[in-house]
Design a protein around this nucleic acid. Sequence first.
DNA 1: TTGTATGCGTTATCAT
DNA 2: ATGATAACGCATACAA
Lengths: 332, 332
Amino acid sequence: MSRKATIKDIAKIVGVTPATVSNVLNGNNRFSEDTKKRILAAAKQLNYTPNMFARALVKNRSYTIGLFIPASPRAFLDPYFSELLRGLTEIALEHGYVVSIIYADGLNETVRNRIDGLVLTEVKVKDEYVSFFQRANVPFVSLARGAENELEDYVVSDTRRGLEEAIKYLARLGHRRIGYALGPLAYEYVYERYSIFRDIQRKMGLICEATDVGTGENSRQGGRMAARRIMRAASEKPTAILASTDVMALGVIEYLQSIGMSVPEDVSVVGFDDAPFSRYVTPPIATVRHDIYQLGRHAASMLISKLEGRDYTKPIILPVKFIVRGSISSPR
Amino acid sequence: MSRKATIKDIAKIVGVTPATVSNVLNGNNRFSEDTKKRILAAAKQLNYTPNMFARALVKNRSYTIGLFIPASPRAFLDPYFSELLRGLTEIALEHGYVVSIIYADGLNETVRNRIDGLVLTEVKVKDEYVSFFQRANVPFVSLARGAENELEDYVVSDTRRGLEEAIKYLARLGHRRIGYALGPLAYEYVYERYSIFRDIQRKMGLICEATDVGTGENSRQGGRMAARRIMRAASEKPTAILASTDVMALGVIEYLQSIGMSVPEDVSVVGFDDAPFSRYVTPPIATVRHDIYQLGRHAASMLISKLEGRDYTKPIILPVKFIVRGSISSPR
DNA sequence: TTGTATGCGTTATCAT
DNA sequence: ATGATAACGCATACAA
């Protein structure tokens, strides 16, 4: 295979200078139709594609966006992650960008030099990475509001709306006392979901007992722990339990079943995320569905607009939907 | 924030030329200890990091490897994918590389110019992409043997070993007739698992009936279909069923239970992959575990060696392990 | 409408 | 042991 064609080659064929070729190829319109046509033809004939390194060098832009992953191995395991990446990649592609995975451990200058901007995920309530990127002037878009960091450029799901639908539904079924299986509060999405839950609970005049909240890791095991704490705390038990995530909801159901209670007859359970497995387990988990793939698409789109100095609406809040499934019913 | 430091800046401070700085920084040893020391000091002081674009331009290398994803949205959904990416990213990082996601749709020249090599996944038995990369001289490492493409640079799991363990275990329990829930044969891993299964079955003198094989998509639903076909075909039924993947095994179990059979008492079921859910479902699925994360690490390592002209052992075949769980027992 | 000149930051070759 | 210089491919300000 011969050497890749450059603008010089085109210039030679057409009989103009490289500068002219560059200009025409970049859509500069102040040239004669004739030369334009000939340059374009030659480019096609030589199968010309620009050398991105050269372009990057002179423009100081890499046309690469990074998906920033905090160092936890868990980040990768989430199905969330794959969906997100799909959305990001698709949009990036449409704009001539490529997406790289930036593992937190690897966030040295060398890596940073190679990306134009970042999409941040798994954001903490008080996130050191966010602060770092702000100080370092790295353009980024966050997938969380960035509670303590006061962000503007973010795209999130309409958590409040989803929880309102869910809780109202439960209330209509007759539930007055709703427990909560709570994940690690350091994560912003966990914090946000929980505080919104509390807010709605209060506004709707439902029973609010501190003992109805149990904490655990964001895992099946964590869900079991949380449920155990809830069910052992007070003598009066909640008739329904909301969980931070579907994964935890699964653990909650397992625990309840393990102590001989049935879901939803004894206790209704509601998750959040609509994870792939949620519809298959027994009973299927009622949950708040949000669209991670769309989240990814919007995040990429916003970031690229930002990088290219175009206007963009911000923040973006995407619709969610409460999915009714077999894990809820009226209380006994 | 001021301009980034370059070798010129260092040169100016130290009082040498950029060439010397470059040489020293690249470990060229033919310089006096004194100047070396001073250059290194200045570099640190200025917080110098090389400009990757400039380097890429002159070396014609991007220090980026791509994870190539065929166009199916499914590719992203697999938990497989996240694990793989984690392994890839970690090793890439150690060698100063970055990994980009290359979505098949986006595989135009522009994108191709930006990566030094690819890791190929979801390879088909007769894979057009593989042929394309071969012709186009794109360096790559495959996560499959590349049946029809005769590859050398690949890293895979020791499927034969795993299946041998599994089938011998079943045989020891007394199973003589083992069915197979088969996924889409176009995918090489499906094809390989199946043909090895057949081979072992024959060598061990077990019963081989064409009707004991049912096909379906690689999904829960597909597993149900496959199981249905198997159980409806012959009058004499297999006492155990192997599935192409854990996901299908799950479907198989569901189907069996739906027609009133119990697993493992009536039929034993064995999967492949050791997916995250496999240990949690009822009954937990016996399966062949392989380490996707390690697969990723080795693939990245092999690709980078290849790119840098170093020697490397090939192919690499990683150990697997048969995991005994509740979905198997002696036949009635 | 087109060309000239210059620079982006680095590496490599060949002198000195 | 160190330096001068060219080259990598492209973009751009300015000149013609």
